[in-house]
Structure formats: C-alpha cells, structure tokens
Design a protein around this nucleic acid. Structure first.
Length: 528
RNA sequence: GCGCCCGUAGCUCAGUUGGAUAGAGCAUCUGCCUUCUAAGCAGGUUGUCGCGCGUUCGAUUCGCGCCGGGCGCACCA
C-alpha cells in the first residue's frame, strides 16, 4: 500500500508504524496555506455537501393550552442544532413544528371553558388559566362519570365542526401561539412550518379506509389497528409483545372504538403529506426515546402502506433521554411541579447576571444584562446538547454555569479573550489578513491542525445526527486556544510577521468558535 | 414476562462506528497574575471500561449468557 501511495503533495514521508498502521505527517506548508486561504475568506474549514439532501426535521412539538416546560428543551435544542448544522452544510431543510393542537384533551378544556372560565385570569395569564381549567375538569371527570360524558360530547361537537366549539378552540390556539412565539423568540428558534395535528384532520378517514381496503389494518374489539403480518420473527416484530411467555398482538391503533383517530393515524397522514409536498430524502423526528416503540410501528406501517414511497425516504427517530434532578428522579421544582421553560430561562439569566456582576462590576448594567442573557441561555442550551443524547442527564445549575470545564461560558470566554486582543491591537481600518501564516510553536501547530477538523466534525454531526460531537470539538478548540494564548504572545510577539500570523490564527479561531456556537444555537459576546 | 436504552476514575460524563499507553470537568495536591480578561494555564494522583464466554492480529466498541438500573408494552400523545 505504501509503495502505491502518493500523497507527497500534502504529506511528509509516510511511515509504517506497527501492526496495520500508517503514520501520515501533514506538511507544515500545506497547513499554513490552508489557514492563509481561510484568512483570505476563501473557506472556514468546511465544504458544501454534494449533493445536498432534502431533510424534514420534526421537533419541539408543544401542546396547545399547556405551558412549555423543561421537557421541551431537549427536542427544541437538539432539533434546532441539527437544522442549523444541515443548513450550514448546504442541505435543504424543512423544519416543522408538529404542534399538539387537536385531540381528546380539548373535550375537557372546552367543558372547563364553558363551566368555570375566569375571564380576568385568562387575560392576565392565559396559559395558567387554561392549565387550571384542564386540571379541575380532569379531576372532576375522574370522580364523576357524568362530567366525563359531558367532556366527551364537547369533543364530539368539536370534531363535528360545531361553530361555538370551533371558535373557542381557535381562541385557545391563538392564546397558545403567543406563548410559543415568546419562548421561541427568546430561544432564537425558527421553524419553516408549524403544521399542527389538526392540519391533517381532513385526511384521517381516508388513511384508515385505505389501510382497511389494502388489508393492512383490521377491526378488533371495535377499534381499527395494524397487526403483525408475520413477516418477521416475533422478537423483531413491532406488532407483537410477549406476555407471560405468549406472543400476543400489540397493534398500532388507527381508529378508536368511538370513531376517533389516534396519533399513529395523524403521523401516517403527516408522512404522506411531507413526501408529496417536499419529496424529502429524509424525515427526522426529534422525540423522547420513550416513544421509540411508536416510531417502529409507525415506520413499519408506512412501509406496508406505501411501499414505493417508503423506499425513497429514510425515516429516522432521533431519540433522547430524560432530564433528572440531582436526586436522580425526573427534574421537578421543589414543590414537585414540572419546571416551566420560561421560568428556567429567567433563572439562568439571573444566575448569569450575578456572576457577571461579580466578575465585571465596572461594566454598565445594560451591558451586563445582555451578557447575562447570552451566557445564561447558552449555558442551558449547551448543557442540554452536550450529553450523548440517548442517555438521561442530571440537571445542575452549578455545573452548566460554573464556567469552567466543558460549558458554553468557557467557550464564550475563549471567544471574548480573542476579541479583547483585537480591541487592544488597534488595527487600522481596512486591515488586511497576512499573506502568509507562519506556524512554529507546538501550541500554534496544535491549534492550526484542530481548526482543520471543523468540517469533518460538522459532517459527523449531520451524518449521525449527534450535535454533541460539535460541543466536544469546540471544547477542544477552546482548550488548544488557551494553551496557545498562555504560551504565545500575540501583540508582543518577537517580530511583525509572527504578530500578523498569530493575529490571523486568533481571528480564525474566533470565527470557528462563533460559527460553531451559532450552529448550536448559541450566541457569543465581545466582552464578558 | 417480553422488548428497548444504559452500566467507563470518589462524583458528573465523553469516547466520531473494531485500532496504538481509555479521556475531560469536579474533588484533591503543587506551581503561575507590575506582561493580550486568573471565568484561565502547566503539572501530580485516580480505572478488574458491571461479570463471564465467544469472534478477531486487535474488543470499552461486535455476538451470546448472566447481574444491576431506567423506560415501554390496545383505544392519551
């Protein structure tokens, strides 16, 4: 292999190193020229994908009439990082927020609205009031069958298009939309589409009829479900479950015995719509791992329903684990309630503000507020993306804001230090990047080599749908930069050429840090 | 019961698809601020990669079997 290999243009002599290893040494001149080209703005160490793919990403998916809570940050944060990564690499992305705006909960909500709505409370805090309606009526339904019947009949009226119920339902959606807009604008998350469950209503009946006609679904106990077709061994068959040693049917229900539809039905109609509308190569669902069984059934059902279409698209469930409190149980407030996303972000900003004020009391308050906003939000997002997504992680304010170790503030700090160098450098307007980058010190070389890996890392994130790879890359980059920073004076470098070269290295590092963090949905600050 | 996920340093976690001496942060110990932000850096200490068998030149990574934890298993989504 060595005899046939010709990489002399980019590498020094290639050496055999033990059993099955070849050692390649990148030519210093190639490294320097790659950096010089980047300094001239010709690239930033990554390339556009060829050919680009079309990818639908389904994430966040909050419910109408409920507060967005801590359970939504993983789907929202991971999904947003993925859409940003794919876009950066030149793929065509359609991000779609599949909002829970339809379903059985509206029976209870409508009943609550009619029986116990507190208008002034609704105007003060719409989501709080809607939440209260649901909780009260839900409790009453558990205790009182007559009330449950009432709720069901409100739902039937809604589904039948009753004008009054439709109007109330629309108002609830409007009120919820205000909340969603507020949260997403704080998070800086944008969607191309927000086609909620209700959007697919017109097709649900057809979906079920078609499945019945093709013999994929059948009736059972008054409901309609998709059952095993026996094509797989029982262990691998998503439509079978073992109970006490017997393999029994575990169907995907598509119509309830009362005639209502299930979420599998909506999801089937959704896949069909997305294929017809955007012809994607891939549809990615960023949803809690606990729903993996649902997605297995959904994908298997779709493959049986539309075999030709199914061959053209890759359906992927990007699952993730739970967020735990430091007691190892699901993360809750001290009083045992779910943590609301808005409150979580408020607290992150407050904690960051305290720290910024301690470290940098001399900055004006407005600037400290803005720094705290970026740092606090970044800390929460980063802590959420950093762990391998399928494992649960323990939520810790101290850890994410500790600002040492693998955290967003550490990365933002590295960026701020670079910007500080440029403020002190007092470069003339229209400063040109150096003609040559000259790398000598081991810290310079290590930093330069690591910059080259940015593109490979982005591609790994896109291929495996794991944004945590980018977190680890950036953490290493910041680490290599600070080593360089400690050991290699920039402004007081021994000669002008070294100074120019090191300035270029600093600038490229800042650009990659900024681009990388932005790709994770995190901003940077010039000073902190 | 069956399926899925997890088990890596005292703690919290990485480990880019089977590669070389398994890495970070916290904790702990030792140095470094009249010099570009010390929210930092340099270095020391810390491991039966849950256990066993197998496949392989080579296994934390793949297969099988155990042990321990979490989650899911028909009309909620």
């Amino acid at each position: 292999m060595l005899a046939k290999l010709d990489v002399s243009a980019v590498c020094e002599k290639v050496e055999i190193a033990g059993a099955g290893f070849l050692n390649f040494r990148l030519r210093a001149a190639v490294l320097a020229e790659t950096l010089a080209a980047a300094a001239r703005g010709e690239h930033l160490f990554f390339e556009q994908a060829a050919p680009p793919r079309t990818v639908v990403i389904d994430f966040s998916s909050p419910n109408v009439a409920k507060p967005m809570h801590v359970g939504h940050i993983r789907s929202t944060g991971i999904g947003d990082a993925l859409q940003r990564t794919l876009r950066l690499l030149g793929h065509r992305v359609i991000s779609d927020n599949h909002i829970g705006d339809w379903g059985t909960q509206f029976g209870k909500l409508l009943l609550g609205w009619k029986q116990i709505l507190d208008r002034p409370a609704l105007e003060r805090d719409a989501i709080g009031e809607l939440e209260r309606l649901y909780k009260v009526i839900n409790a009453e339904c558990d205790a009182n069958p007559a009330q449950l019947e009432e709720a069901k009949s409100e739902l039937v009226k809604l589904q039948a298009g009753d004008a009054e119920n439709i109007a109330i339902w629309k108002e609830m959606i409007c009120l919820s939309q205000i909340q969603f807009d507020t949260i997403y604008s704080r998070l800086g998350v944008k969607f191309d589409q927000a086609l909620g469950e209700s959007f697919y209503n017109p097709w649900l009946g057809e979906v079920v009829n078609d499945l019945l006609q093709r013999g994929i679904a059948r009736e059972s106990e008054g409901a309609v479900g998709v059952f095993s077709d026996g094509s797989l061994p029982p262990k691998e068959d998503p439509f079978l479950v073992n109970r006490d040693g017997e393999w029994v049917a575990d169907p995907a229900l598509v119509r309830k015995s009362d005639g209502g539809f299930n979420y599998t039905t909506t999801d089937l109609a959704t896949i069909d719509y997305r294929l017809k509308t955007w012809s994607p190569d891939e549809i990615v669902y960023v949803v809690d791992d606990r729903q993996s069984g649902h997605f297995k059934k959904l994908f298997a059902t779709f493959a049986r329903w539309k075999a030709d279409d199914a061959k053209k698209v890759k359906l992927v469930h990007v699952g993730f684990g739970k967020i735990m409190g430091d007691d190892g149980k699901p993360f809750k407030t001290r009083s045992g309630d779910t943590v609301k996303l808005g409150d979580l972000l408020d607290e992150a900003e407050e904690r960051a503000f305290k720290i910024v004020s301690e470290k940098n009391a001399e900055l004006p308050e407005a600037q400290r507020r803005e720094i705290a906003r970026v740092i606090g939000l970044g800390a929460v997002k980063y802590a959420d993306i950093l762990p391998n997504r399928q494992s649960d992680y323990i939520f810790s304010w101290d850890k994410m804001l500790a600002l040492q170790g693998n955290t967003a503030p550490y990365l933002q700090y590295a960026y701020a230090r670079i910007k500080s160098i440029f403020r002190k450098a007092e470069l003339p307007a229209g400063h040109q990047p150096p003609a040559a980058v000259n790398l000598q010190a081991p810290e310079e070389l290590a930093l330069a080599r690591h910059l080259l890996n940015f593109g490979l890392t982005l591609e790994a994130v896109a291929d495996e749908l794991r944004p945590n790879y980018l977190c680890n890359y950036l953490f290493e980059l910041a680490g290599k930069f600070t080593s360089f920073y400690e050991n290699c004076p920039v402004l007081k470098a021994e000669d002008a050429a070294t100074r120019q070269s090191r300035l270029a290295l600093c600038d490229l590092t800042a650009r990659v840090l900024c681009q990388g963090l932005n790709t994770l949905g995190i901003q940077v600050v010039e000073q902190m």
